[in-house]
Design a protein around this nucleic acid. Structure first.
Lengths: 218, 218
DNA sequence: CACAGGAAGTTCACGATGTCAACATTGCTG
DNA sequence: CAGCAATGTTGACATCGTGAACTTCCTGTG
């Protein structure tokens, strides 16, 4: 279904090498994290000479960054998926809280389901930011919104529902992100051996702590 | 001052190669993170053949793990340093809160001051845990307590002061750790370009959020 | 419709790295 | 003082990222 015409021989030179390499790189990262992305192996899997990659990427870090962008998009999709299974309760406040929780859950679950890609998503964006005008660096989900934008949306909803104090709004994004990101890393690293049951309980507890910290006092 | 006897020629074979290699590896990690730890270079710096390292480490990951342990110890020391500058206020509750804050601040500051070592501290402990009886895996600070133990101490103090609900005690450690760890990673990664002033404000806000989430309601 | 231009790949080559196997050295122990 | 075992050294390999030069083959121009 991906290939429109299977009978024809592979097009011109290859067709779309760049995309194929990113796919191969993604597969590598999936099982071994960013350091598993090895240029020669990716080329090998695509059936092309190692140096062919240099027609599409300036160097290895460039490929890795492309994979990271892909991973970021998947992260966003995971959050969207969790959002999609949300039923409105009728109470704006509860809805807003649930919204934030879903975003967080989607985040942590992506990390747990795709540890290699998750790790890849957060490494080495050191390459020049180019011009400087663009506020978003791609990596969006199906809704066209990036992971961080989905978080901001959730916080805005809380603000609108009156569960989040305007004064806290600014730091809320980073704090919430930090809590969820840290939890993910911990679950993948030091707390790796945790049984699924305890793990889920911990996720719930942590998300609740974030909520408690954010919610307007009283 | 580090070398007790500078007049004598280097002892037997080398003296204490293992330690020297870990030191060299630490220096490498300091500027480039775990991936900058390269066996041959470490050996080169110590003035020894590459393969000499294999008398002390089964392979590269083994060296990296040793460096990670060293980094963990420095992390603990950073937290201890922050604790040391704490003046008792007379109020147990405030003391407990300040204690937790200091632990968190020591954590984040270490991450910011030693990004490479911080990154190294949390990577690839995948090697077999050996027997299975030992509850602590080294990496202690000068007080003999590891970073995670220092956190637990802070939480116990909060419990004793009545600021932390016993029911929350279990998840508190992980949640607090996650928040602080995530904040550190974010400040080093996606939020890397933040000006110091904003950064400090963010740290304060995040630590306060953790406090708010933990503190007994009311 | 041929053909030049250039994009996309290929082949060769190099230096660096992790690691294995065999060999050399040296301090300690009986 | 002899030999053993720990500690280092040499030599060799496969693999990796990457640069330079060469080859194919699509595509736009006359």
């Amino acid at each position: 279904m991906t290939v429109p015409d299977a009978s024809a021989p592979p097009p011109y030179h290859h067709g779309n090498l760049r995309h194929a390499l990113v796919r191969a790189g993604t597969d590598l990262a999936r099982t071994g994290g960013p350091s598993a992305i090895v240029l020669r192996e990716a080329a090998r899997r695509v059936g092309v000479s190692p140096n062919a990659a240099y027609r599409h990427f300036s160097a290895l870090p460039d490929l890795i960054e492309a994979v990271a962008l892909e991973a970021l998009a998947m992260l966003a999709r995971s959050m969207e998926a969790e959002l999609a299974r949300l039923g409105p309760t009728g109470d704006d406040r509860l809805d807003a809280l649930a919204h934030l929780g879903a975003v967080g859950r989607g985040y942590v679950h992506f990390a747990l389901n795709e540890p290699g890609l998750f790790a890849t998503a957060f490494t080495a964006p050191k390459t020049s930011h180019g011009g400087g005008g663009q506020r978003d660096q791609r990596g969006q989900g199906d809704s066209g919104r990036s992971a961080s934008e989905l978080l901001e949306d959730a916080l805005d909803k809380m603000l609108a529902a009156g569960v989040l104090a305007p004064a806290d709004r600014a730091a809320a994004a980073t704090s919430a992100w930090a809590a969820v990101h840290g939890l993910s890393e911990l679950l993948l690293g030091p707390l790796g051996g945790l049984p699924p049951a305890e793990r889920e309980a911990l996720i719930d507890a942590s998300l609740e702590l974030v909520g408690r910290g954010l919610i307007i006092r009283g």
